Lab assay of single mutants.
Amino acid sequence: MAAAAAAGAGPEMVRGQVFDVGPRYTNLSYIGEGAYGMVCSAYDNVNKVRVAIKKISPFEHQTYCQRTLREIKILLRFRHENIIGINDIIRAPTIEQMKDVYIVQDLMETDLYKLLKTQHLSNDHICYFLYQILRGLKYIHSANVLHRDLKPSNLLLNTTCDLKICDFGLARVADPDHDHTGFLTEYVATRWYRAPEIMLNSKGYTKSIDIWSVGCILAEMLSNRPIFPGKHYLDQLNHILGILGSPSQEDLNCIINLKARNYLLSLPHKNKVPWNRLFPNADSKALDLLDKMLTFNPHKRIEVEQALAHPYLEQYYDPSDEPIAEAPFKFDMELDDLPKEKLKELIFEETARFQPGYRS
């Protein structure tokens, strides 16, 4: 834990890192770190609560700039109880001085990944967590956004079992017609939660990839272990087919990539493993919904509104309290091709509203 900075004593240090967030945020305490930044909790002297502050230093890398800009653009436009918001952003007053960006968010005690390492969940908890994931996802999908990296560590939890989806750095506007060349190379989302079509096709992607990830998360809540822990690309596919069985001819016809289709045709026939054999203690309604989410063919996979209306979630289902976005989200430009200098300018502009004396 960093010592509390005395008023006016300059930035606090946390594990050798400068955290320049005073005077409003003090009493910093280390939480963890990701690929390009550290997260601390801090005391907000204005709202009198502890908050989470993520320090991001992305400006050396085009990919990190892209992810940072995506996350900020999306989260500043989203407003939903099951999606983490941005409360404040701290950065230098000029673009030349801006080396880091500090993002202030609600402090959540833990995440689903940490929880599943230590606790076996009751059916009631599984049901409530799944409902909140789908409630947040309904809003995301209504904005025409794909999260693309749903996994237990991106689901934040607090002691009252509130759940918030975080990390929109890989999110995209849904565009089933656009052929994202190089899709697989830039697709760094965790393999275990990846839909089979991501490994088999490169053309376009749809909201059904997020539903697949939610199915993987439900299976993990039922058993405290990942359902498809593939060691590499082909191993991942083999794990999936080992449980779902061989795809039907109709399902194979959806695979545009001939090499991928021929690979699947070359494999020995596998039978589907019954879900109640894998999860003998699970609620039968939970397994019915799991089956509809972990469907090989993305066109037959359940959609988020149908999933919310499934009998497993009937005690929570309330369409009048499951809000959607006001308007579909649009990125003005494809960020993939922009140089990091341009992305830095866009991050600077996007964060201006939090600067003292800002006038829109």
Rank of each mutant, 00 (worst) to 15 (best):
Q105I: 13
L130F: 10
I126C: 07
G215S: 02
L150E: 03
K138Y: 09
N201I: 00
P356L: 10
S223G: 07
D177F: 09
K151Q: 01
M13L: 00
D20E: 00
G32V: 01
Y263I: 08
Y36Q: 15
A189D: 05
R353W: 14
Q17T: 12
A195S: 01
I133N: 00
R77A: 10
L137K: 05
L258N: 09
S122W: 09
Y36D: 10
R77L: 00
D111V: 01
K114Y: 03
Y25G: 04
S122N: 03
K55F: 11
E186I: 13
Q355W: 10
I243M: 12
D20N: 01
S57C: 11
D177S: 08
F296S: 01
T118N: 14
Y43V: 12
L134I: 11
D288L: 06
A4L: 05
Y263H: 13
K138W: 09
N87M: 12
Y263N: 00
C216E: 01
H269E: 06
K272T: 12
L237F: 07
L76M: 05
E345N: 07
E96T: 15
K203Q: 02
K207I: 10
I256W: 07
H61N: 05
S360P: 01
L258R: 12
K342R: 02
A309E: 15
R261P: 03
E81Y: 13
Q62T: 09
P58F: 15
P23R: 14
K114I: 00
S246G: 09
E81K: 01
Q306N: 15
G16W: 15
K55S: 09
Y233L: 01
A171V: 03
I140Q: 03
Y30S: 07
N201R: 07
L155S: 08
S284R: 10
D106Y: 01
E220W: 03
P323E: 10
V173I: 09
W192C: 00
G32K: 09
A7F: 09
F59H: 15
L237Y: 05
D111W: 09
L290S: 04
I256S: 08
Q249D: 14
P58A: 13
I31D: 10
Q306C: 14
L170F: 09
V173F: 06
A5Y: 15
A3H: 14
N27V: 12
I86M: 11
L170G: 08
E186T: 09
Y233Q: 03
P339L: 03
E60S: 14
M293P: 05
S266V: 13
A171K: 02
N45A: 13
A92I: 15
Y43L: 08
V51G: 01
Q249M: 10
S202W: 05
A307S: 01
G242I: 14
E71W: 10
L200K: 02
F228I: 00
C40V: 09
S284K: 11
R135H: 05
L290A: 04
R261N: 06
H299F: 11
I255D: 11
A327H: 15
Q66P: 03
F279K: 07
L338H: 14
L163K: 09
K164E: 05
Y263S: 10
K344D: 04
A92Q: 15
L75I: 15
L121A: 10
Q315K: 02
Q249T: 13
A309Q: 14
V14D: 00
I133T: 13
A260Y: 08
I347S: 01
I256R: 08
N87A: 14
A9R: 06
N87T: 15
T295Q: 10
P319Q: 00
D235N: 01
G10S: 11
L222P: 02
E349A: 15
E220T: 03
L290G: 02
A309M: 15
A42S: 02
H147K: 03
A286P: 14
K164N: 00
V49E: 00
G22T: 10
N158C: 08
M293R: 03
F78M: 13
N271I: 00
I133A: 12
L222F: 08
I302W: 11
G215V: 00
D210N: 02
E81N: 14
L343K: 06
L252M: 01
S41D: 13
H269D: 07
L75T: 15
Q105A: 09
A35I: 03
C65R: 07
Q105C: 11
I133Y: 07
T295V: 11
D336E: 01
L287A: 10
K207W: 06
K99V: 12
Y36G: 13
S142N: 15
E81H: 09
A309G: 08
K292M: 00
I165P: 04
Y64D: 08
A307C: 15
P11H: 00
N47E: 06
T118W: 11
L156F: 04
L335N: 13
A307H: 12
K340G: 01
T68K: 04
A327M: 11
P247I: 14
F59L: 00
Q17C: 14
T26F: 07
D179H: 06
I89D: 08
F183G: 04
T160G: 09
K164H: 05
D288I: 07
S153K: 03
E81F: 11
R91H: 04
Q105K: 00
A143V: 04
K54L: 05
N158M: 11
D235E: 00
S284V: 11
A219Q: 01
A143K: 12
F348D: 06
T190F: 04
Q236Y: 06
V188H: 05
N144G: 06
A260G: 06
Y128S: 08
V18E: 10
M108H: 12
N224C: 09
A3N: 15
L278T: 05
Q62W: 10
E349R: 10
H178A: 07
L112H: 10
C166H: 05
L335I: 07
N158W: 03
Y30C: 04
V39S: 04
S248T: 02
D177P: 07
G182I: 03
S29K: 13
D124A: 01
L244P: 02
R194D: 05
Q97C: 11
F348L: 00
G357H: 13
C216L: 03
D336F: 15
H178C: 04
D167Q: 06
C166S: 00
V51Q: 13
A174R: 08
D177W: 09
I83C: 14
Y64V: 09
E250T: 15
A42V: 10
K138A: 11
P268Y: 09
E60D: 00
L69C: 10
R261L: 00
N47T: 08
H125N: 00
P311M: 14
D100T: 15
I209Y: 02
N271S: 10
T68D: 11
L294M: 03
D149F: 05
I165A: 06
V101I: 08
C65D: 06
I84N: 00
F296Q: 02
S320H: 14
F59S: 03
I217Y: 03
N281G: 14
K203L: 02
W212L: 00
V39K: 03
A171I: 08
A4F: 15
W192M: 01
G169H: 07
V145K: 05
F129V: 12
G230F: 10
H80W: 15
V173T: 05
L150R: 05
E345P: 14
R301A: 03
D175C: 10
F329M: 10
L222Q: 01
Y187S: 02
A2R: 11
P247W: 03
A325D: 15
T118V: 11
A171P: 03
T351A: 02
K340I: 11
R50L: 09
L278M: 05
Q315V: 15
T94K: 11
K272W: 07
G169R: 06
D283G: 13
I74C: 07
S266W: 12
D177L: 06
I347M: 06
T159W: 05
L75C: 13
L69Y: 14
S153Q: 09
A189H: 05
L137E: 03
T181I: 04
T185A: 02
P247Q: 05
Y233A: 03
R15C: 12
M13F: 15
P311W: 14
C216I: 05
T185R: 02
E60L: 09
S284Y: 13
L130Q: 01
N253A: 12
L287F: 09
H180F: 04
Y43I: 13
P323C: 14
A286E: 12
T26N: 02
I126V: 03
H147T: 08
L264R: 07
R70C: 01
F296V: 06
M333E: 12
N253G: 08
A3Y: 12
A5W: 07
A189N: 04
D124H: 08
Y193A: 02
K259W: 06
A282S: 02
E186P: 08
R353Q: 13
N262I: 00
D162Y: 01
C254I: 07
P323L: 09
S266E: 12
